[in-house]
């Protein structure tokens, strides 16, 4: 019986900025329909990893495969087409502050040039509803929204193009615990409704357990543990245990600059 092709597979991905090696041979497999949570400390390379997959940073070496196709060797147009199937929720929302909320949500639809503005507007209202916001919010500017509402709008924008893969960069950062739980719930609902594959990076353990089916930990540019998200708090790996329980003492030593 042949093994199913994973939705996303990273093999030996390396990236260095000058002398500083940020990704040191990342290997990660995310099966289709799975929610993978990548945890790791600040500066461990989580965001760089996402940016490599999104094409915002070119890795120095390795393979990044979506549905078995290596993005790095595809012709430019095919690569752009493959990446158009990825939705992204940025850490700070990254809403376009020059556009009203509904245009932010419908941006991806309007960018295709195939959806009229009136239709895009009504579809934006539907997506806003899916993340628990009234259609009237669409007329506001992003600056008029609270942090939690901005995250919801950013989530609506990420799902509007019905992506195959959804990336979440620190989805609960800057939110109170209740709003964090609300956003996590919305993420889980949206991923299930779309049938997408999700990859979230976070260092919020409560969020990681709520979102993830699978989890991996990145440390010094390498994946040091990979397993079910339910085992995060009791993984048996001393580094993971130190991180998930927030212990000062342990094998992970914080690098302090003096």
């Amino acid at each position: 019986m042949s093994e199913a092709v994973p939705k996303l597979r990273l093999t030996g991905v390396r990236k260095a900025f000058g002398d500083k090696v940020v990704l040191d041979g990342i290997d990660l497999v995310v099966p289709a329909g799975t929610s993978m949570v990548v945890i790791g400390g600040s500066g461990s390379g989580k965001s760089v990893l996402l940016k490599c997959v999104l094409g915002l940073i070119e890795p120095d070496a390795g393979r990044i495969e979506i549905d078995g196709q290596d993005l790095l060797t595809l012709p430019r147009e095919d690569r752009a087409r493959a990446r158009a199937r990825i939705g992204m929720l940025f850490q700070n929302g990254a809403l376009f502050d020059s556009l009203p909320v509904w245009e932010n949500v419908a941006f991806g639809l309007l960018a295709t040039g195939r959806v009229p503005r009136s239709e895009a507007r009504s579809r934006a209202a539907e997506y806003l509803e899916q993340v628990g916001l009234a259609a009237s919010v669409g007329e506001l500017s992003p600056a008029e929204l609270s942090g939690g509402m901005q995250k919801r709008v950013a989530l609506a924008r990420a799902i509007a193009a019905r992506p195959d893969i959804l990336f979440f960069d620190e989805p609960t950062t800057g939110l109170d615990p209740i709003m964090g739980a609300v956003i996590d719930g919305l993420i889980v609902d949206c991923v299930k409704r779309l049938g997408s594959t999700a990859v979230a990076i976070t260092h919020d353990m409560a969020s990681a357990r709520r979102i993830g089916d699978q989890a991996a930990m990145i440390h010094r540019g390498r994946i040091i543990w990979n397993g079910p998200a339910g085992q995060l708090m009791d993984s048996g790996n001393p580094m993971v245990d130190q991180f998930t329980h927030g212990r000062r003492e342990g094998p992970i030593q914080m690098e302090l600059r003096r």
Binding site: K51, L54, G55, L56, A80, R83, A84, I86, G87, M88, F90, Q91, N92, A94, L95, F96, D97, F107, G108, A111, T112, R157, A161
Partner: peptide, 13 residues
């Protein structure tokens, strides 16, 4: 600096 330019890229723009 607020990732809006990266967001444009991820929205096929």
């Amino acid at each position: 600096v607020t990732d809006q330019i990266d967001a444009l890229s991820t929205l096929s723009t």
